[in-house]
Design a protein around this nucleic acid. Sequence first.
DNA 1: CGCATTCTTGATAGTAGTCAAAACCGGTGG
DNA 2: CCACCGGTTTTGACTACTATCAAGAATGCG
Lengths: 215, 215
Amino acid sequence: MHAYTASRISLPSHPAQPSLPTAFDSGPLQPVSFFSAGSEIYAQGEKAGAFYQVEFGAVRVYRLFADGRRQISAFHLAGETFGFEADATHHFFAEAINSTGVRVFRRIAGADMSHQLLPLALKGLTRAQEHLLVLGRQNAVERVAAFLVDMVERQGGLRQVELPMSRADIGDYLGLTIETVSRVFTRLKEKGVIRLLNLRCVEIVKHDALQNMSE
Amino acid sequence: MHAYTASRISLPSHPAQPSLPTAFDSGPLQPVSFFSAGSEIYAQGEKAGAFYQVEFGAVRVYRLFADGRRQISAFHLAGETFGFEADATHHFFAEAINSTGVRVFRRIAGADMSHQLLPLALKGLTRAQEHLLVLGRQNAVERVAAFLVDMVERQGGLRQVELPMSRADIGDYLGLTIETVSRVFTRLKEKGVIRLLNLRCVEIVKHDALQNMSE
DNA sequence: CGCATTCTTGATAGTAGTCAAAACCGGTGG
DNA sequence: CCACCGGTTTTGACTACTATCAAGAATGCG
């Protein structure tokens, strides 16, 4: 029932990554689970036996430190996949940022899914490596610019970008504080590079300037 | 000929990752290439048609920014594999740190290696994600401690750790300057946590203290 | 043994973090 | 439809950490 409602609500299409290879679609449709804003999809230490594709909404994957610091390793938007693990255990938490639908692909006993999984894992690896560059060597402005450029690309290159996540999420993704993220947004506004339609919606006025800043 | 000599010189065993699944070993032995200190294994932008396993020595994988900044995304020690790409192009540079032997596994036309590649790609993904945490949310001491703990584990947990790379390499891996890396080493020495046998060889005196620092 | 390179140490500067308060927005209920 | 309320975001003042610039020391190679 949930699954049914899901397919009615879900976005018309996934911009960047249309769908998984047909091998996955054959047989009974994979179930879609619903998660309200802030609810947990899986926890660190949990047994990992599936992977996930976002149908609509957005997901944050993160680790918590003992002293409360949080690092978000990735955001996942509609059409994107996540939840692969090298062993049988989840090493991160995954949460819905907003109301989110997630298609769950459970590991089928005996079936070898590596042919389908490999490109997804490699995509995740590429993303993680690119993000390493940002966290290792870029300053606050460059980080925010890189983040915005990435969000633009993943949403099909439109002038307007939806930011499903809070400033705190952005900070914990970019290795910055919420205040620094806010200050950078303000500076980008003042320079006329972006415009805030509202807190969660950014218009990219000078895409080239942003791209140059991000490197 | 090179390959032959390689197998004579190579370390007696690879501590953490003994060898690839036997599927790779069947048929003719994969060739081993030699690289002197600082020489390039592949370049960003090059066509990617193979992956690599370190026989002996060490490898750095990195990206250069336009202004000369460098970020090393990973080091690879004996037994470890690298060089996977999501598309047919290398997005990073790979260089031998010292004299290094690398076994090259070329993609065989028509053969599906995804079953062998997937666990290696997932291992790489896990490493990259762990490193994200370090770069995003840890201070200089925590970064160096995490680096040393990682090197200890990858070398079998011995008290003495070989650091095949320079301070500059460590800095570019940890997102720090060479001076900061040096200062942290000095502080760890003063606290009696480590001892420098020589510049490239560290004795871990207080492993627990180091582990606590790294989180 | 001497030179070049790498590493260490010191002084200073700059960027981002912390703490605090004000402003803003979005949702709710009257 | 508007006013209120709570949480998020923005702004400000100050601090702290790491980068930068500059010497000096140590290492290792020829």
